[in-house]
Design a binder for these strands. Sequence first.
DNA 1: CTGTTGACTTAGACAGTGTCTAAGGTAGGG
DNA 2: CCCTACCTTAGACACTGTCTAAGTCAACAG
Lengths: 151, 151
Amino acid sequence: MSDLLARLRARRWRLTAQRRVVAQVLDGDHVHFTAEEIHARAAALLPEISRATVYNTLGELVAIGEVLEVSTDGRAKRYDPNAHHAHQHLVCDSCGTIRDVHPSVDPLVGLPTAERYGFTVSRVAVTYRGLCPDCAAGSAGAASALTDAEA
Amino acid sequence: MSDLLARLRARRWRLTAQRRVVAQVLDGDHVHFTAEEIHARAAALLPEISRATVYNTLGELVAIGEVLEVSTDGRAKRYDPNAHHAHQHLVCDSCGTIRDVHPSVDPLVGLPTAERYGFTVSRVAVTYRGLCPDCAAGSAGAASALTDAEA
DNA sequence: CTGTTGACTTAGACAGTGTCTAAGGTAGGG
DNA sequence: CCCTACCTTAGACACTGTCTAAGTCAACAG
Ligand SMILES: [Mn+2]
Ligand SMILES: [Mn+2]
Ligand SMILES: [Zn+2]
Ligand SMILES: [Zn+2]
């Protein structure tokens, strides 16, 4: 991710302050922020950045394959800068934590040709759900953690 | 699904006309309607049924495990009455068609304990994406099909 | 059969997420 | 240093889902 700006320059993107801060917020690998979270963090660095610009920039990063969209629930999409290493996600049903995981077998091999109904299958998204270690120990703390996260 | 009403009676549900038509709309297995689609079909049978009641009823059916929620994209959730036979989904990127598929191996076995980070994993959702046979043959027709579906 | 009552339904307001438009601003080439 | 095409902005709008207060009725008791 550290040379994302170089790659964007190579794509002849205009390097604006807004795009720089969005890239900077996404710079830590293994994050899965919502657009609003990214906007809040970007605004801490560049207060006048608008919601529309964050959505525009994220949409462009997704379109060129530098960022992945992750829809784990029916809530806001999450944006994943770890786009250059195929992986899947492990989600806690209680607190919503998301972790990257790397299954030992390609999830595509589980689907025989006979079960593809003529589809040309090119991608597969796997979401493993359960409880994280913190939430598994004491559901009261788990519930409040979720409440905190949603507040 | 045909004895869904019997199961609801056994759970001491009040059998209202509204709940009956929602159950009737979901009666055909292998459908994946949005709440709005279910409301439209239910209203064709019982014109005065409200959106709120459709959402309430679907939420209750999901809570008791008679219907599954499916979030394939960031759009509206889809409601799946095929809850008594574990399956996964195959989605066309172009027209949005959803098909039930039955992988030959349990998707959970692909995730070794070492990759679970202490999580207690209880469920897994797999979404296979690609192009359906119709859309693979001629992307113009495919694009218009998606436009139609969204209109 | 009839009356009672708590569960159910309703319209519409509201909230969260994402898209669009028109007007103004600016990065980068010349 | 100027231009101009591309970018950003505020805010309106659309879609999806939730909530509330008031009215209605399914089921049961008598
Ligand atoms: Mn990830
Ligand atoms: Mn299904
Ligand atoms: Zn947790
Ligand atoms: Zn298709």
